[in-house]
Design a protein around this nucleic acid. Structure first.
Lengths: 125, 125
DNA sequence: TAGCTATTGCAAACCGTTCGCAATTATGAT
DNA sequence: ATCATAATTGCGAACGGTTTGCAATAGCTA
């Protein structure tokens, strides 16, 4: 927590309540969460602000972001890892980056959906 | 094309114009496309119908789906593979399932975003 | 403590996607 | 070929997650 707050400050950002609260939620939750989930836990922070904090954290490279059913799931980056997510109830577990499909004990019908983004030659100039 | 149409028919679905047209677009395009992209090319097919055809193809397991910036990108499943997508212009290339980060010659700042979905023990009963 | 600027809250807009329903079309039987 | 029937489509409106503009607020620096 303090590391991240320090990083924010060093990057020239203010240490505001919304930022601290969103970070706090992300730190104490070990499942990937949607912006709505986060907002649910800190209703004193406006939903738009939750999104803005998330955008900031993303820009700083602190977030792992995944998509399911048109909504994004966020969690702080630790070891590079992903999540398996139950399509029905949303229950999720972490998965190492180098998984194989035999690894899933608690899930059936596992499908993968990967997005790699970057900048192509032209755009990176 | 004929294989897929046959599969549709065998599964009890009608061979309608919208279905043929969407399939045709997907077959002749080698980049991952959004529903909007597809609709753009066949404006005689209603956008809602494009989505319905895509849903159908997905249910039949014929589609690879990826997410970028709140929109989904679709392509027909061949070998299991993914895409690298330029964050700025959307240019994309196919990537083998077993890529390593050194593989990207035409992209910089590559980030990955993987979603694994499935059914957890409880929900798969 | 005051003053400046970044940041927030709010409400409205946005945009991709989904839905209900009446009109249309593909299909198999006559 | 034609018909009857159910599946499918087009349309428009709704939906839900996310973003944005702007005035009000709060954090930082001196």
């Amino acid at each position: 927590m303090k590391d991240i707050l320090a990083q924010l400050k060093n990057s020239g950002y203010k240490l505001t309540q919304p930022r601290k609260k969103v970070l706090d939620v992300l730190l104490h939750n070990h499942q990937a969460m949607s912006a709505q989930d986060i907002h649910q836990r800190i209703q004193t922070v406006n939903k738009a602000s939750v999104y803005r904090v998330l955008k900031l954290l993303q820009d700083l490279g602190l977030l792992n972001i995944e998509s399911i059913n048109n909504e994004k799931l966020y969690c702080l980056t630790k070891e590079p890892h992903h999540h398996v997510i139950c399509k029905k109830c949303g229950y999720s577990e972490e998965v190492a980056c180098t998984y194989s499909f035999g690894d899933f004990k608690n899930f059936t019908h596992v499908q993968h959906q990967l997005t790699l983004t970057g900048l192509c030659k032209k755009c990176s100039k």
